[in-house]
Design a protein around this nucleic acid. Structure first.
Lengths: 224, 224
DNA sequence: CGATGGGCTGAACATGTGTTTAGAGTGCTA
DNA sequence: TAGCACTCTAAACACATGTTCAGCCCATCG
């Protein structure tokens, strides 16, 4: 397709194909797939719109290439650190590199939000790894046992990603103009407190709910 | 603008304007604002695309009308019940009426997700009411004190809404084909457990983090 | 040198879609 | 009945945008 001598994307990635891909990732992450048009991507990459098609075939295939690239980079990075389980983990990674990593995480969040073809891959990667870590934590006693580890893993990913996804309006609800390290630092303490102590002062609510659930299990008459 | 004899939307709402509005809410909630085109809305409402413009002026004003309507209905409904704080509250309301309420909640989630002009209103309403309830709970001892109630309120709204927003791919990660009552019931127990006990077995992580935060407070530290 | 081929471009094309326009149908009023 | 107001529509328009086309530039090769 393109010249093959670029070898790895680790090297100086100045080929037009790579510039287009990076520009596309930036735009897709910030504005979403639909709202981004090829001419904007081309402008950011400093090329013509036609070249985008020439290299990638179509906007859809361009997205696919971006999916692959982001997934590859994120997975490689995740193997060097603990995979994200809580918002703290995500925040730490996020704060450590406001540049590329943030773009990629936001891209992934967007992909999930828009239910991209690659969303399933992203989600499965995150949830599987999260579940694995949760089970390890439960096994070594650092985490409390859960009645449904898989669901808890989904919940963890949900909380972590939504912090980035829902950013704009909820960020303003905290008084900040736009999302950034400050917002994450602000959300960190309450999250950790929640993860450590919970939110309820006692377990009356939990017990009541458990009783209700068990009751509804014995008599499955509720409509659907 | 339109004929004024329709009075309240509580009455038989068969006027074309209302049909268009409801169709628009359905489409906006399901597909988002961008992906929805006027002709699809018109088809659902059983009218022509031109009539949509005739009644609402533009697609943007149509959205504005939908925003107002949904907000009004949701707020009225919220005054009859406790406002949503946890996913349980949202779930209970959601499960109680799979029809209209679900549509409206999903519409609101979409609006926030897409950072609509009305998103700030939705978010402020949710977060303010959530914070109020949290403070009341803390005051009467049913909830644990928090170092940052406002941020906790944002976090609560975040968790509640993201369950609906992120639904499709994360739903599949749980093995369900599409979002619905089953998914919420599945996520309920872990959420309640998290809110009751937290996730960590002890507070070593919290203490360590607190120490780290205090250590980094040597610089300009701001508190609410 | 001339030819070949790939990277690249501006312009044109095709389509989707928000909006405008001209007018038909209908009921109400004078 | 004529006139008017209102609802509603089909068709046309305007524009954005993904994609195609014909060709330029330039390096490599014979």
């Amino acid at each position: 397709m393109c010249s093959a001598h670029l070898g790895d994307e680790a090297a100086a990635d100045l080929t037009a194909t790579a510039k287009i891909r990076n520009a596309a990732i930036t735009h897709f992450a910030r504005d979403g797939f639909q709202k981004t048009n090829l001419r904007a991507i081309a402008a950011t990459a400093g090329v013509s719109a036609a070249l985008v098609i020439h290299h990638f075939g179509s906007k859809e295939q361009l997205r696919s290439a971006c999916d692959d690239h982001v997934l590859r980079v994120l997975v490689r990075r995740a193997h060097g650190v603990a995979a994200p389980v809580t918002i703290q983990d995500v925040s730490r990674e996020y704060l450590s590199d406001p540049e590329e990593y943030g773009r990629h995480v936001r891209y992934m969040a967007r992909a999930i939000e828009e239910d991209t073809p690659a969303a399933a891959t992203f989600v499965n990667t995150l949830v599987d790894e999260s579940e694995q870590i949760l089970r390890a934590g439960i096994a070594d006693g650092s985490l409390r046992p859960s009645s449904d580890v898989r669901a808890l893993a989904v919940l963890s990913v949900l909380i972590s990603l939504s912090t980035l996804t829902m950013a704009p309006p909820l960020t303003r609800a905290l008084g900040y103009e736009q999302a950034g390290p400050d917002v994450l630092r602000r959300l960190g303490p309450p999250t950790l407190e929640l993860f450590t102590h919970g939110m309820y002062a006692d377990d009356t609510t939990l017990k009541a709910a458990q009783a209700a659930w068990e009751a509804s299990q014995n008599s499955p008459k509720r409509d659907e």
